[in-house]
Write a protein that binds this DNA or RNA. Structure first.
Lengths: 219, 219
DNA sequence: CTTGACAGTGAACAAGTTTTCATAGAACAT
DNA sequence: ATGTTCTATGAAAACTTGTTCACTGTCAAG
């Protein structure tokens, strides 16, 4: 890589700074004004030099359009891969409490949960409302595999009155379980989404903590 | 804030994506070509609307020069939540920004297929350094169904250098797509997890926005 | 039925911008 | 001395781009 002259370096730096500040490139006249050139062609020459030296790429014919050539550019036959992050236009997300794990199998686990981490979860863009007190639960067991909820997944639970067919987090015998809620007339019971598990008919009381709205899986 | 129409949204997102990929803004005629408008004035009208609605700022008289007004939305509490459990070890959870939607199908705008309500991933100019931060994207299209990532799902993307086999968010042709990254020696290409979709071999440059770490599904 | 907001066509114009052409002094090596 | 390169001027050409004008169609509200 050829060495840049002072002015070339200054111009290149100015251009970079301009993009960083304004999000668009300076025109040749902008640069001319900045460096007090009497002619646009002075800038033009420098830009040609910068391109020839391989640090700047101009888009022919396009106004205010350049690309900075990365410092280390390997073999030109290979594809250049750049890594970029997201923008700063956060739309929305909500914070949910992480309430520990939930048993999707038999509710006979006695794990010292009740741990209150919290995690943040993106909210569906359609529902702009703020879900009241949603919380996340890590799933243990395999009783919901037919609903594609597996061991290790995280479910987002929203408190509320469940409808027939909703997958709910229910408190049974002091343990939270994840099951599908079935309402048949006056009868209400919980159904596992796995043939190997029997239905769970509540004896005395059934506490629904909330409805499973979404499930999060590690890829 | 006034609500944007679908086309306005699409145009704004295209512009953002264009800046993210090329580091310079598209001209009105670039946008016209992208959306197959017969007149530049169609674009002009949309740009006026976008500025009137306060999401885009045009620089008068300057070509390819705009500024994005950050979209302020209700309670975007970008707080870092700390572990409140019994221990003193503070575990920090990453904030996840919802950055729009991602195409898991062909990276194309097709008016007839109704893709116009989709959003693209807003990105800041690459010259800006930012701390690696996870973000969320809504998936549309069905090119990743074999990896169990379907239309409507939300994927959590973490910026970073992907390994062979990672599912990545990649910028191609001004559109972000979700594909599996395949590295074979010096060759790099993107593979869809759906038999009906062909492999995507990048022509010159490939921008990886991040690695899909987990997927979130609406129940 | 009318009105108004919205979205678009088609053509033309004006301004912004890059690029070319002609010219020239200074530094420097041959 | 002479040519070369770099840097610069000044003007103009050529192209890109934003903007305006006149007109058409759609759709929902009044």
């Amino acid at each position: 890589m050829e060495e840049l002259t002072k002015k070339q370096r200054a111009i290149l730096d100015y251009m970079k700074a301009h993009v960083a500040e304004h999000t668009y490139w300076p025109s040749i006249r902008d640069i001319q004004a900045k460096f007090r050139f009497a002619s646009t062609n002075a800038v033009f020459g420098h830009l040609q030099a910068l391109e020839r030296k391989g640090v700047l790429q101009r888009i022919p014919g396009a106004a205010r359009a350049y690309k900075i050539v990365p410092e280390v550019l390997g073999d030109t036959s290979e594809t250049v891969i750049r890594y970029e992050g997201p923008g700063d236009d956060a739309i929305q997300f909500e914070s949910v409490k992480f309430a520990g794990s939930i048993a999707a199998g038999f509710p006979d686990y006695t794990e010292s949960s009740g741990v209150l981490d919290s995690m943040q979860v993106p909210l569906a863009p359609s529902s702009r409302r703020r879900a009241p007190e949603s919380f996340a639960l890590r799933v243990r067991g395999d009783s919901m595999i037919d609903a594609d909820i597996n061991d290790g997944d995280t479910v987002i639970i929203e408190p509320g009155v469940p409808k027939h067919g909703d997958i709910v987090a229910a408190l049974i015998d002091g343990e939270t379980t994840l099951k599908r809620l079935i309402k048949q007339g006056s009868k209400v019971y919980l159904k596992a989404e796995n043939q190997n598990y029997p239905d769970l008919i509540p004896t005395s009381s059934l506490t629904i903590q909330g409805i499973a709205k979404s499930v999060m899986k590690r890829i």
